[in-house]
């Protein structure tokens, strides 16, 4: 036994519980001694024999881990799927809410668009890393916690009931619709909030609210609330598909939004007077034409949205009848 063997023994034994060290030490010295002797007998020099015997043992930490059945992986097959499913679920549920929350908070405190995007990306990455780290840590600890005898631990036995339903035809395309609706509505809501601080890239409007600030007493919160309802509505469409109830809801939402907006616009309450002056409104003779175009686009957009809902409802009923 030389310094080299002693170093190997120390490197292996230091990670073991105190109680198991003596036995481990004895067993390992027996093994190294026997292997070295056999190599010397085969004609190797004592030094070479010892080096070869220790090299064959491999990494001392791995040897010790095997000795006490300590896993050499962070999360093994028993918990891997549970960890992976939970991680995905947390990321897709928590991250969007965190991002929206940060965007709103930044907008309310008057950040620029660039500042909002920067904050959302920065905090989003940090929230994601936290979620991944803590989830993984919990499972790594579970992996190292022995389950009581006869129990499986916290992993759930898989049953047939856990099989996912076959994807409904149309649900995949509805997902794309959901994402685009929600993105549009969030941007729209953000625009309503941000316009309060002016349009930074137009010098005349740099700090002038576009919409009449007096509307904050009722109408702007009302529109923001409606946008919230529209988001819920988009989720409902994704979950259930179009039906007559939802088509009717779509009509109500469109009326609730478009009528007050047009009324405010036509009675001159919508746009901030200062902003109009800054834009040098009215623009010569074109004013009536522009007003007419805006009104037609607003009515046309709302009408099309309602009709689109009805068409999709009729199609969805038809498809349901065809498969029934």
């Amino acid at each position: 036994m030389t310094i080299l063997t002693d170093r190997y023994m120390w490197a292996a034994a230091r990670t073991l519980p105190e109680a198991q060290r003596a036995e481990f030490d004895r067993e390992l010295r027996e093994r190294i001694g026997d292997a070295t002797d056999a190599l010397i007998e085969a004609g190797a020099s004592p030094d070479d024999a010892e080096r070869a015997a220790l090299t064959e043992l491999g990494d001392p930490a791995a040897l010790a881990a095997h000795y006490v059945d300590r896993p050499l992986h962070l999360i093994g097959p028993r918990y891997f799927l549970a960890w992976w499913r939970l991680l995905k679920l947390l990321l897709i549920t928590v991250l969007p809410f965190a991002a929206i929350g940060i965007a709103i908070a930044q907008a309310v405190t008057g950040a620029t668009v660039g500042g909002i995007i920067g904050a959302v990306i920065g905090v989003g990455i940090s929230v994601g890393v936290h979620i991944a780290f803590w989830t993984t840590l919990v499972f790594a600890i579970l992996e190292r916690t022995p389950a009581p005898a006869g129990r499986r631990g916290i992993d759930v036995a898989w049953t047939l009931d856990m099989l996912p339903a076959l994807p409904e035809p149309g649900k995949a395309s509805r997902l794309a619709e959901l994402i685009s609706s929600v993105v549009f509505l969030v941007v729209f809501a953000a625009a309503i909030v941000v316009q309060q601080f002016g349009v930074p890239w137009v010098p005349e409007l740099a700090s002038v609210p576009i919409l009449d600030p007096a509307l904050w007493s009722f109408w702007l919160p009302y529109f923001l609330g409606l946008i919230g309802l529209e988001i819920l509505f988009a989720v409902a469409i994704y979950a259930w598909g179009w039906n007559w109830w939802l088509a009717a809801g779509n009509l109500v939402l469109n009326i609730a939004f478009t009528l007050p907006a047009l009324w405010l616009f036509l009675t001159g309450q919508l746009i901030n007077e200062t902003a109009l002056e800054a834009m040098r409104w009215p623009w010569g003779d074109s004013a009536p034409i522009i007003v007419t175009i805006v009104v037609l686009v607003a009515i046309g957009g709302a009408l099309w949205d309602v009709i689109d809902g009805v068409i999709k409802t009729v199609r969805a009923r038809g498809a349901a009848r065809a498969t029934a």
């Binding site: 067993e27 064959e56 043992l57 095997h66």
Partner: peptide, 10 residues
């Protein structure tokens, strides 16, 4: 080989 046998005995 030894790396299989010794852990197996344990």
């Amino acid at each position: 080989d030894a790396n299989t046998l010794y852990p197996l005995l344990r």
